[in-house]
Simulated assay, not measured.
Amino acid sequence: MAELTTVARPYAEAVYSLAGEQQSMAVWSEALSWLAAMVKTPGVAEVITHPKHTAQEVEALLLDVLAERGNGEVKNFIGALIENGRLLLLPEIAEQFELLKAEAEGVLDAVADSAFPMTDVQKSELTDTLSRKYGKTVRLDVRVDPELIGGIRVLIGDDVIDASVRGKLHAMAASLKN
């Protein structure tokens, strides 16, 4: 997966830069989202990767589905991806683009795995605590993971805050082995 990110990042950065210059973040965000969803669809993925379809047919298909959601630059971008054989990178490019956009807006996405369902008050308190710690607005996605036994594990960017019973048991086992 790291290779996909490495290859997709320059495309996402180029698109982000272009969108910023043209003040068309919303257009690019919507277009990339639609394109990523199309490429993820098994039937469409088969069509765009099948050798019997020409680059022009694939481009026409994508532009037809995209319709008015894209501008001339989006169409040129699709052509460049097809020409370079990078069309299947669209989901990763879209994800990288959204990360760049969120970072510029001062927003961090966090995933909190909790052993038990969290109340709205607990979610709000956790969001506020993370926002203060990172100095940015935090969008929190909470999931229930009973394997944690108790507590919570938060993933935010490259940081992992593990305050789960399972994590503490693993740490204790590792220290006993040493």
Rank of each mutant, 00 (worst) to 15 (best):
residue 101 K to W: 06
residue 125 E to H: 03
residue 164 S to T: 08
residue 166 R to N: 09
residue 139 R to N: 13
residue 33 S to T: 14
residue 73 E to D: 15
residue 91 P to D: 13
residue 28 W to H: 04
residue 25 M to L: 13
residue 145 D to F: 00
residue 57 E to L: 07
residue 137 T to E: 10
residue 167 G to I: 03
residue 122 Q to T: 05
residue 170 H to D: 15
residue 83 E to W: 06
residue 23 Q to C: 07
residue 172 M to G: 11
residue 178 N to R: 15
residue 119 T to A: 07
residue 31 A to V: 10
residue 70 G to D: 03
residue 73 E to H: 14
residue 94 A to W: 01
residue 96 Q to V: 12
residue 153 R to L: 07
residue 120 D to F: 04
residue 159 D to R: 08
residue 54 T to Q: 07
residue 117 P to N: 09
residue 95 E to R: 14
residue 121 V to W: 03
residue 120 D to I: 06
residue 42 P to Y: 09
residue 171 A to V: 11
residue 118 M to Y: 00
residue 124 S to P: 04
residue 43 G to L: 06
residue 8 A to T: 12
residue 56 Q to V: 14
residue 46 E to N: 15
residue 74 V to K: 01
residue 103 E to D: 15
residue 130 L to Y: 00
residue 92 E to A: 13
residue 92 E to T: 14
residue 33 S to V: 10
residue 120 D to S: 09
residue 112 A to R: 00
residue 64 D to F: 07
residue 113 D to I: 06
residue 62 L to M: 07
residue 148 L to M: 06
residue 118 M to D: 04
residue 125 E to G: 05
residue 57 E to N: 10
residue 71 N to V: 09
residue 128 D to M: 09
residue 49 T to V: 13
residue 102 A to W: 00
residue 83 E to Q: 14
residue 90 L to A: 10
residue 33 S to E: 15
residue 74 V to Q: 02
residue 154 V to Q: 00
residue 52 K to F: 04
residue 4 L to R: 13
residue 178 N to P: 05
residue 116 F to P: 04
residue 55 A to M: 09
residue 142 V to H: 00
residue 74 V to R: 00
residue 159 D to H: 07
residue 91 P to W: 02
residue 150 G to I: 08
residue 107 V to W: 04
residue 18 L to F: 09
residue 65 V to N: 06
residue 87 L to W: 01
residue 159 D to L: 08
residue 62 L to E: 02
residue 88 L to Q: 11
residue 107 V to L: 08
residue 12 A to V: 12
residue 122 Q to P: 00
residue 28 W to R: 01
residue 10 P to M: 08
residue 48 I to K: 00
residue 150 G to E: 12
residue 75 K to G: 10
residue 34 W to G: 15
residue 91 P to R: 02
residue 24 S to I: 03
residue 111 V to S: 04
residue 42 P to W: 07
residue 34 W to E: 15
residue 99 L to R: 12
residue 130 L to A: 00
residue 79 G to H: 09
residue 161 I to E: 05
residue 41 T to V: 12
residue 66 L to R: 02
residue 77 F to D: 04
residue 171 A to N: 13
residue 107 V to Y: 03
residue 24 S to T: 12
residue 156 I to R: 03
residue 62 L to P: 01
residue 170 H to G: 10
residue 97 F to I: 12
residue 100 L to Q: 08
residue 88 L to G: 05
residue 26 A to V: 11
residue 165 V to E: 09
residue 37 A to I: 13
residue 135 G to E: 10
residue 22 Q to F: 03
residue 161 I to G: 02
residue 159 D to V: 11
residue 116 F to D: 13
residue 12 A to D: 10
residue 91 P to K: 05
residue 52 K to D: 08
residue 111 V to W: 02
